[in-house]
């Protein structure tokens, strides 16, 4: 048994793993909605690849959650058999895709946070967490490189592309703050050395975002009201529809082997 498990109770650890795993599950779902519908063939390939990375990471995080919980739940059981209020993803990842620029902006804002989280988790006191983070970091470094590059090119592209990116940024900005809010669970996890405090990731995220937005000639939104709730299970209306779709077969045919 890994060292850190004794430092926080199982329920706390499992809840935290669901926060991490649910983020990538729901974002992977959103990204996969583009499959076959993106503006150019190379983007279809890139987005399918990215969705694949995210779903793969979700299998690892939720798999570990099931293992630590110790009640015999698989990653699939956790993904497919919880209702919306038990999901712990941030609101940002359940935002609808919008146009392709909106999807890319959501991805960039998430990737810039995700990479900092994974870098910190590589030093986790729990070797299993550190192992998953090391694997995911390689994938996410590429996600960020790609999303940042496209945000820059579309921001500094045509007048229309700039306006669309500006609009996406304004609309999504209010969902970014939740990624950096500390609560009692985060403090316990940080105390055990398993995970960083969310607030500690903010300076590096701010730096990346400011640099990319400047190069993209986009206006930094600055201080704004920030929504929250996803990490505690209070979601937007969108999540219910994602789950209705995602969980349909498992719910309609309980116990079937696929």
């Amino acid at each position: 048994m890994a060292l850190a498990e004794t430092a926080v109770d199982r329920a706390t650890f499992v809840e935290w793993l669901q926060r991490v795993g649910d983020n990538v599950l729901i974002l992977g779902h959103r990204v996969s909605e583009w499959c076959g519908h993106s503006p150019v063939l190379e983007e279809d390939i890139a987005l399918a690849n990215q969705a694949l990375d995210l779903i793969g990471q979700c299998q690892l995080w939720l798999g570990l959650a099931g293992e630590i919980e110790g009640k015999g739940r698989s990653a699939d059981a956790i993904a497919y058999l919880r209702d919306a209020a038990a999901f712990r993803n941030v609101l940002l990842v359940e935002r609808p895709n919008g146009d392709f620029g909106h999807t890319l902006m959501r991805q960039f804002l998430f990737d810039a946070w995700h990479i900092e989280l994974l870098r910190a988790l590589k030093g986790s006191s729990d070797s299993r967490v550190a192992g998953i983070a090391a694997k995911a970091e390689k994938e996410v470094a590429y996600h960020l490189e790609r999303s940042a590059d496209l945000v820059i090119r579309l921001g500094d592209g045509t007048e229309e592309s700039r306006q669309r990116m500006e609009k996406a940024l304004k609309s999504l900005w209010q969902y970014t703050g939740e990624m950096f809010m500390d609560d009692a669970l985060d403090i316990a996890m940080a105390g055990a050395g398993i995970a960083p405090l969310p607030s500690s990731l903010k300076p590096a995220w701010d730096a990346t975002v400011s640099e990319v937005l400047a190069e993209a000639t986009l206006t930094h939104p600055g201080e704004a009201y920030q929504h929250k709730g996803g990490r505690k299970g209070v979601h937007s209306e969108h999540l219910g529809y994602i789950l209705a779709e995602m969980q349909f077969l498992q719910r309609a045919y309980p116990g079937a082997i696929w």
């Binding site: 499959c35 076959g36 399918a48 969705a51 793969g56 979700c58 990653a75 995602m246 077969l249 696929w258």
Partner: peptide
């Protein structure tokens, strides 16, 4: 069926397959 694939593994396999088709 990607968003409705019944397990995470089936979803991953289907994504990989559709990605291959685009390739």
């Amino acid at each position: 069926w990607i968003t409705r694939a019944p397990t995470l593994e089936r979803k991953a396999i289907l994504l990989a397959k559709v990605q291959d088709e685009a390739g």
